[in-house]
Nucleic acid binder design. Structure first.
Lengths: 138, 138
DNA sequence: AGGATAAAAGCAACGCTGTTGCAAAAAATA
DNA sequence: TATTTTTTGCAACAGCGTTGCTTTTATCCT
């Protein structure tokens, strides 16, 4: 399983380091999304704040994780599916935020709908965030 | 026109002060949404940062404005329509972010679609943010 | 209109988040 | 293993948003 992590890093043309392995492992273990603060806590103060920031940045650039917009000024990150290539994110799925446990999930099977825009507006990307109660809390 | 602003404040059970009048006026003049930073700049350094923060907070609580989620950790605010009551926001419209001018608009006529969620998930609120090019930039 | 009371503004200070430059350490390459 | 390249950790900094407290302003009442 650890070799899977190393493989994924190499496939993304990244050198294999302790912090990258650890952070990637956290994402693989976690069902929902993670904010920067969560990662710092879960990593157990082993890594510098700056390292975590830079690692997340790198992962986003390489298409390993993607960001999820929130209303409360805290960016959350989640693993990308296989069809996410470097620079081209295809995470056209709906994100779900649970009001009970406050976790964020990627609903990979729920595709973002098509929106009919007023004339003059062109659509390039669409973000859908649904709030409610998740299956674990209901 | 100034009396309109005073009326709106009174209707929301807020005392009429210079900063509230000024900030509300900025929203009425502006077509798109405003971030905290925009307001500080446009207000012309007349008001303390803290006052702006507290005023925005108050306006959100009273249902005068609503927040728009973004991917870049900068909360934006826009005027609510008349059917927004205190605590109960009914801004079920789509938000649009222009990649050219970087403005955010409320597409009041575009209602958020219905999403079919997996079993176990219950939907309470839905946020849709479309990115592309707005009518002014195309 | 003027004084009492309640609310908001301004100020100072603080904590948190995210960034940058640079030196030390670790990983890749050969 | 030695060399080069990348990454890490450290220190410092800027910006955002918050809190406590005092002063100022708005509202209310007679």
């Amino acid at each position: 399983m650890n070799s899977d992590i190393k493989e994924l890093l190499k496939k993304s043309q990244l050198s294999v380091t302790a912090s990258r392995e650890k952070i990637l492992q956290l994402f693989l273990e976690q069902e929902g999304a993670l904010a920067h603060g969560d990662i710092e806590k879960k990593a157990g103060e082993k890594f510098d704040r700056v390292t975590v920031y830079r690692t997340l940045q790198t992962f986003v650039e390489k298409g390993i994780i993607h960001t999820i917009p929130t209303s409360d000024n805290s960016i959350r990150y989640a693993l990308c599916k296989d069809d996410c290539a470097s620079g081209h994110h295809h995470d056209h799925h709906v994100h779900f935020v649970c009001n009970e446990c406050n976790n964020t999930f990627c609903l990979d099977d729920v595709v973002t709908p098509t929106i009919k825009l007023p004339s003059g507006y062109s659509q390039e990307h669409i973000e859908v965030v649904v709030k409610g109660v998740c299956k674990h809390c209901s």
